[in-house]
């Protein structure tokens, strides 16, 4: 095992918990699973955020990036003992850069059954344009 760790230094670090983000107050975070599908008009982003309610979700859209922070709202009652754990309590953090390719004032977000669906409309400049032949 030590040999493997020396060959692949990345394994030695904690892979799941990422503390390299800008916001130090957030504590340990984990990147949620996400998928982006592109249409002519928009990028459709779906993010798996199980256990996150609307109140605990913050989506920040900036000119060049999109940031999603989701806190799990469920806390383990004190008298429950853990027999087996596979999930983590870390906060979900997803930071995506879009380089002005998205109209940030027109983003549509929907959270249902632990999946956040965001529709990010494309900026006019990158939309396919039909050129008429004169």
């Amino acid at each position: 095992m030590n040999l493997i760790h020396s060959l692949i230094p990345s394994l030695n670090r904690n892979l799941v918990v990422n503390e390299g983000h800008h916001d130090k107050d957030l504590g340990p975070t984990v990147q949620p699973n996400y998928e982006i599908k592109e249409t002519d008009e928009a990028f459709n982003l779906s993010v798996n955020l199980p256990g996150v309610t609307k109140q605990d979700l913050a989506i920040t859209a900036e000119a060049e990036s999109l940031r999603i922070v989701g806190k799990r709202s469920w806390n383990r009652p004190k008298d429950w003992t853990v027999s087996h754990r596979e999930t983590s309590d870390a906060i979900y953090l997803l930071e995506l850069e879009h380089d002005n390719r998205v109209k940030t004032d027109n983003i549509n977000a929907k959270l249902s059954d632990g999946v956040l669906r965001l529709s990010l409309p494309k900026a006019e400049a990158i939309k396919p344009r039909r050129i008429e032949i004169s």
Partner: peptide, 12 residues
């Protein structure tokens, strides 16, 4: 390795 370990796989 980080990509394989974290969220690059599709949610489905």
């Amino acid at each position: 390795f980080n990509a394989a370990a974290s969220g690059s796989q599709s949610p489905h």
